[in-house]
Design a protein around this nucleic acid. Sequence first.
DNA 1: ATGGTCGACTCTCGA
Length: 262
Amino acid sequence: MKIATYNVNSIRKRLPIVLQWLTLNSPDVLCLQETKVQDPDFPLEAFANTGYHITFQGMKSYNGVAILSRTPPESVSTGFGDDEEHKDDPMRLMHVVIHGITILNTYVPQGASLDSPKYQYKLDWFRRLMQYFQCHLSRKKPVIWCGDMNVAPESIDVHHPEKHLKHVCFHETIRKAYYKTVAWGFIDVFRAHYPKKQQFTFWDYRQPPALEANRGWRIDHILATPCLAETCTKVAVDLSPRQAETPSDHTVLWAQFSGEIK
DNA sequence: ATGGTCGACTCTCGA
């Protein structure tokens, strides 16, 4: 199973990137975030000849998630389905089962600033996500949780960490919220594969020479339950979306899993 | 202390 995650920042703008990436890399599953399009306007026809099935849930202008897969998912749900459900949750969390493997695709709220209610919402979102794990998943089964987590877990995962202690993607409170959620039973397959490597997945548009100066962040992640993480043979970040005609701020992170899954 | 650049969409918000 080859699975990839990519924050497209508008599926309509990044269509060429996505289509080319599918062709060149043939993933089994590609999870997308920030599609930024409501369902009736989703560019379905562009994928008609790719051989991929697409599951999507979006809204006007913001958020939106989608999953491309070679075979249609055996099941699909979006949002937390709890009594705290917020209107954008279904555009941030998509849960599918493909070949018996549970896949959660998330676009975690960015959080704006530490003093914003949006930051509290982000902290709470991780708490709700862990509750969701507890209710709906088993850590003994093969589960993949991937997406744009908007958290750089360690100092090595952000340029100039000392300057970002109050950043919503690096503050210790959000890192703890993230760690706690991960600790439910997930392994960060990139970090497991490369314990010391600095490899960013995102470079902010607002710092034009960011890529050249390597002022980036590792905020896109693929995590797996131990039985699956054990079978991970390769993890890589593909920088090609940064070099496209309409470059994106995020890159494609992918992982290959092989071997027997119980 | 603020702005830098994108994308979607009404002129401003979110990242």
